[in-house]
């Protein structure tokens, strides 16, 4: 455990140093942004949409009992943008992106591709890790917006199937008390989730040992550790958001 933390600290130092030095890997960053962001979009939107439907189905019954059915749009919108959207995005991305990065870099490590890169005077921390970590940091807030949008839209669809409502009324009821501080901090919170996914999965991938079995272990540990750290970070970040916003 102590060795793992020490290695992680050293890895973060190397990545930070590499991120601040030239040349910047613009083309590779864009390639990773596409792989991590654009290719995760359908899955994240589906997860967000499904969550919106479940929120509508579950809360409708409770609100009807308390005579607060008119609050349903607000409950769906607030729930999606403040907590459910960011956390669902973080966890789904840690599954898809974390496993992908862990397995890819792990495979590159055991087949000596990372050594080959280093031997040809290219810093793998810069080319492989910095680009993926930055792509995760940039992609997560954008994916969260997509999850929020899909969640609210599918929440409306579920609501209107149970009791026909106009979209305009649903949106105006849902958004009328939403302000800037309800939207921005939760979205920005996901940059930290992106940082966690990027750092943990790159670190686990690049320290892979033990052939194909090691690659499997790296992929699994990338997902497990990213998810765990996202949940812990969420608790701390929610407390910070309440404190400062």
């Amino acid at each position: 455990m102590v060795e793992w933390v020490g290695d992680l600290g050293l890895f973060c130092w190397r990545v930070a140093r590499a991120a601040c030095s030239r040349p910047f890997e613009g083309a590779e960053f864009l390639r990773q942004l596409d792989a991590i962001g654009a290719k995760s979009l359908p899955l994240i939107a589906l997860a967000g949409g499904a969550t919106g439907v479940v929120l509508s189905l579950q809360t409708r019954d409770s609100l009807v009992r308390f005579g607060a059915k008119s609050l349903l749009p607000s409950v769906i919108v607030f729930s999606m943008i403040k907590e459910t959207g960011p956390v669902i995005t973080g966890l789904v991305a840690s599954g898809r992106v974390g496993a992908g990065i862990g397995a890819e870099l792990g495979s590159m490590r055991v087949t000596e591709q990372i050594d080959a890169m280093e031997a040809s005077a290219v810093d793998p921390h810069k080319y492989l890790a910095v680009t993926r970590i930055l792509a995760c940091i940039v992609a997560l807030p954008l994916l969260t917006l997509a999850a929020d949008f899909a969640g609210v839209l599918m929440g409306y669809v579920a609501t209107t199937l149970a009791e026909p409502t106009s979209l305009k009324l649903f949106i105006s009821n849902g958004l009328h008390s939403v302000n800037f501080n309800d939207v921005l901090p939760p979205i920005l919170k996901t940059t930290v989730f992106g940082l966690i996914i990027g750092v943990v999965s790159c670190f686990q991938g690049m320290r892979t040992r033990g052939g194909t079995e090691g690659v499997g272990r790296s992929a699994t540990s990338s997902v497990v550790l990213s998810s765990l750290f996202i949940i812990v970070a969420d608790v701390l970040l929610v407390q910070l958001i309440i404190e400062f916003f």
């Binding site: 890819e104 590159m108 087949t111 000596e112 050594d115 080959a116 280093e118 031997a119 040809s120 005077a121």
Partner: peptide, 24 residues
């Protein structure tokens, strides 16, 4: 330094046992 090491590496070629071609 890392920069000096990289300058030296640029003058050296390395063929790995399994070639280590970049898969992607």
């Amino acid at each position: 330094s890392p920069e000096q090491l990289n300058e030296a590496r640029k003058k050296v070629g390395f063929l790995f046992q399994q070639a280590a071609l970049y898969d992607s």
